[in-house]
């Protein structure tokens, strides 16, 4: 490799992937979202990025794949394969703390953790309004504007908001 000022390392790829945003929630990166399962760099410099779908039917997965290839290509990394794997299954627990904070700032209530006993018992979780912080909120619909979101309303500030569904 020519002089190799900039060798292809896992860390470097990770940093680049952190610039690839979720196509439907453009404030959080694929790293924040926890969809990147693994990065493999072979001896010859061939890169394999493994991602796992958030939802089986999520139409954003194809876009994410294309965006990864574009962003790595822009950084001069051309020999890339993106593989989609189903196991281990993605869950909202894989969203990083930073990712949850960014979701909230964007106006989307982050998911509660799956270990929440209320979620296990099928009860409605307590969801904080991302606008005013009130816990007096009510779910309007279990399904929202994308496969990953539910629609809620705040009884305090009366604003509707999206919640990232807990899965």
């Amino acid at each position: 490799m020519m002089g190799d000022q900039n060798p292809i390392t896992e860390e470097r790829i990770l940093a680049i992937l952190d610039r690839v945003k979720d196509p439907e929630i453009p404030v959080i990166s694929l790293i924040d979202l926890g969809v990147v399962n693994g990065i493999d760099v072979s001896a010859s410099g061939a890169v394999t990025v493994t991602i796992t779908p958030t939802y089986t039917g999520c139409p954003a997965m194809d876009v994410m794949k294309a965006d990864i290839l574009t962003e790595l290509g822009n950084a001069g990394i051309e020999d890339v394969r993106v593989e989609l794997v189903l196991a281990p299954a993605w869950s909202t627990d894989r969203i990083t703390e930073g990712g949850k904070r960014k979701l909230k700032e964007y106006g989307i209530a982050p998911p509660e953790t799956t270990a929440d006993i209320r979620a296990l018992k099928g009860k409605a979780p307590i969801v904080e309004c991302p606008q005013c912080g009130s816990e007096d909120t009510v779910m309007l619909s279990a399904f929202g504007s994308t496969a990953c979101k539910a629609l809620w309303k705040c009884n305090t500030c009366l604003e509707p908001f999206d919640q990232f569904k807990c899965l």
């Binding site: 779908p53 939802y55 089986t56 039917g57 999520c58 139409p59 189903l86 309007l140 619909s141 279990a142 399904f143 929202g144 504007s145 496969a147 629609l151």
Partner: peptide
């Protein structure tokens, strides 16, 4: 509207699973 969205969301989930 909420149910319109709910059913199409469900359709999408089912389709994703069917594709796999």
């Amino acid at each position: 509207l909420e149910e319109d969205i709910a059913l199409t969301n469900r359709a999408l989930d089912h389709l994703g699973e069917a594709r796999n």
